Computed example of a mutant assay.
Amino acid sequence: MSFYFRQRSMIQRAKSLTSQVFDTLLDDIVSGRRRSGTMLSENALAQEFGTSKTPVREAFVQLQSFGLVEVMPQRGCLVFQPTAAEVSSLCEVRHILECAAVDLAMQRAPDLLLLELRSRFERMTTDAEQKQRSDFSHDDDAFHQAFFTHAGNPSLQEAHRLFAPRLQALRTNLQSMHGHLLCEAQEDHAEMIGLLDVGDIESTKAIIGIHIERMSQKYETESEFLWTAR
């Protein structure tokens, strides 16, 4: 094998390892397995994944671009631990994007949207009954993602993807502490489906606002406990 192809193979393998580490850490953070406020060590993760520190370091940089970690020189990186003001800002952006997505989805694919929302709602009901909070969080995320999927606007989807991992991680951490939040979320989801079924988009957007604001308020009042509850 020529020097060029050996070098190319090494680069591709390095990219593959970085992608594997990134994908695993991303899933761990948004699912709550690596909770907000956790310090991640390059050395420990390199041993865990059986790699050198380079793919771990590169994965940290990618995670930081999504706002999911803060790289701290000589220490590793901290899984994002936002202030109440930062959460409020994220929630404002989420509200703006999600309302825009609802408008477009109801214009372009209302039947497909409602079909997927009902399917996700049924799954979340089962998840809640079986106390499967991780599955509930996944299906909750998919419920709201449906607005963007059926909006038919790739640029809007791209904008949402920049914020979605942080929002999902916040939701997972809060729901892991409060079982009653699952019930409240389901009540909101049922109301959204009912309103969209009769074409009341404006009232749906009002419920979305209440739904999102609840997360912001809960974080503001209980974030201190969130970091100490391990």
Results as ranks from 00 to 15, higher is better:
H211A: 04
I11H: 07
T38P: 03
R34V: 13
V21C: 00
S2E: 11
S89N: 09
S203R: 12
S41Y: 00
T172Y: 03
R171E: 02
I201Y: 02
S2M: 11
Q145K: 05
C183H: 12
F121H: 11
V61I: 13
F3Q: 12
V30Q: 03
L17I: 01
E213H: 10
T24A: 15
D111R: 14
L162V: 07
E116A: 10
W227R: 11
F80P: 00
L196C: 04
L68W: 02
L162Q: 11
P154D: 01
Q7D: 07
V21H: 00
E158M: 02
A101R: 03
L97R: 05
R133Q: 14
H160Y: 11
Q64H: 08
A100R: 11
H144Q: 10
F163M: 11
E92I: 01
A46R: 01
L112N: 10
Q62D: 09
R35Y: 03
T24N: 12
G50S: 06
F5M: 09
A105Q: 06
H150N: 01
I210L: 14
F80N: 04
A100L: 10
V71N: 04
A14I: 06
E184Q: 14
W227E: 05
T172W: 02
L195K: 04
S88F: 12
F143Y: 08
S88T: 14
I11Q: 10
E98L: 15
F225K: 12
L17S: 04
G67S: 05
L182N: 10
A164Q: 12
L25K: 07
A128Y: 05
R94S: 10
V198T: 09
E220S: 13
N173Q: 13
A164G: 03
I212K: 06
K205Y: 05
I29S: 08
D188H: 14
Q130H: 09
G152N: 00
V102H: 04
T204P: 02
F121I: 02
L97Q: 09
M72T: 11
S155Q: 09
S9I: 06
L90A: 08
H95Q: 15
F136V: 06
S2L: 12
E129G: 11
A59E: 05
D197T: 14
H95R: 15
A101T: 04
G179I: 02
C183W: 11
E70Q: 15
A206L: 09
S216H: 05
I11P: 00
S2Y: 08
V93C: 09
L167Q: 07
S9K: 13
V56W: 09
R13Y: 10
T125F: 07
F163K: 02
E222Y: 09
Q130P: 01
Q186C: 06
A85V: 15
E191R: 13
I96Q: 13
Q157H: 01
I201G: 01
D139F: 13
E187N: 08
S65D: 14
A164T: 07
L170M: 01
M10Q: 14
R123A: 14
E191D: 08
